[in-house]
Design a protein around this nucleic acid. Structure first.
Lengths: 193, 193
DNA sequence: ATTATCTATAGATCTATAGATAATGC
DNA sequence: ATTATCTATAGATCTATAGATAATGC
């Protein structure tokens, strides 16, 4: 048959792969398990994506795209006051993490694979925006950006440990909202805004 | 021969294992590679430690011991003013990380294995100290502790990415000292100290 | 007559053990 | 006569491919 534009199978594999990779990381993820989740034979996975690594790269690419989007949007609207722009960026990034709570752990865990792609895509695209931001603030702009990302990511990294500290899942929504506001306040305060 | 109290071989394996596990994590670590580093056959590794997992647990135990030590020492000296105690704890913990820069990534990466042991050992031991601390501050004490740990750990987690932001390794010492002081300031400021 | 899918399996990679031998303390 | 060490390999586990067959567009 001709390329039946079979989004269904291909997408099913991609979705299953995303879930599996984020849950278990590259090493613990099993191609057979991914195929199973997708409801296909593992041979099909290789038919569509050739190797486990190529499949992983597709997933990683998507995820980095998400971050890229948020972070660069941060530096759009140069007319908006600095304070508003920062608030927005922090807020959007945090919301992204709420929607993808496994992302920080995933990225950290696969840092060796992530770093090069991250460098190529995110950092290079952001350089001009960072330079312009640098004119508006005292501290190092890259440092500030890293601080924002890290401060937002941390609660998700220690998620499992958070349960330890006895946070019931009912109060989770309000707790997250609280943390978000705290993060905004802390960053702004650091800049004297 | 009788148990020749052969610390040399056993310790060699432990040291090699520590390096390998911290570099590569449990999954990527190879028992053969560990044995090689230690200058012995991999059969010996199994002879002394039975399984890869048991060897790993030995290493993990040591590392958690380090953190436990610092964190609990944090709450010793109840006579010292709060500000001094916190400064000490943050400082000691940061120094520990400087001496073990791979530790944060390792712990995060193996969180599933780490969490239970962490809970059992560190948290339970710390509970009384946390309760007493709670009387002295407004915010949640556990939250504060997590903040301290996370704030200190982050620079090491994003270490690879730090290189990206163009930090030369010559200035590393002073940079780290700077970050440490910043972290202290930030935490104290948050408590109004 | 090209693409999609399946079954079966080759091949690679690792952990762990069996079994033999060397070293050492009693 | 017990412990330490070596060589060789069994066994488990996964990825990836070969080769056959079913489905579909031209």
């Amino acid at each position: 048959m001709e390329p039946k534009e079979n989004r269904t199978t291909e997408e099913a594999i991609l979705e299953a792969a995303e879930a599996e990779f984020i849950e278990k990381g590259f090493d613990q993820a099993r191609t057979v398990s991914i195929a199973q989740r997708a409801g296909v034979t593992n041979a099909l996975l290789h038919y569509y994506f050739r190797t486990k690594e190529q499949l992983f790269d597709k997933i990683l690419d998507r995820k980095i795209g998400l971050i890229e989007e948020v972070v660069t949007s941060l530096f759009a609207d140069p007319d908006l006051p600095l304070k508003e722009r920062l608030t927005r960026v922090i807020s959007r990034h945090f919301d992204l993490l709420v929607a993808n709570p496994g992302l920080p752990r995933f990225l950290m865990g696969e840092m060796h694979r992530v770093a090069p792609l991250m460098k190529e895509r995110v950092l290079s695209k952001m350089l001009p925006a960072l330079m312009s931001l640098q004119k508006e603030i005292d501290m190092d702009a890259t440092h500030l950006l890293l601080d924002i990302l890290s401060q937002n990511m941390f609660p998700f990294l220690v998620g499992p440990a958070l349960e330890l500290s006895g946070v019931a899942s009912e109060g989770m929504d309000t707790l997250l909202e609280q943390i978000k506001q705290e993060n905004i306040t802390i960053i702004l305060k650091r800049l004297g805004l």
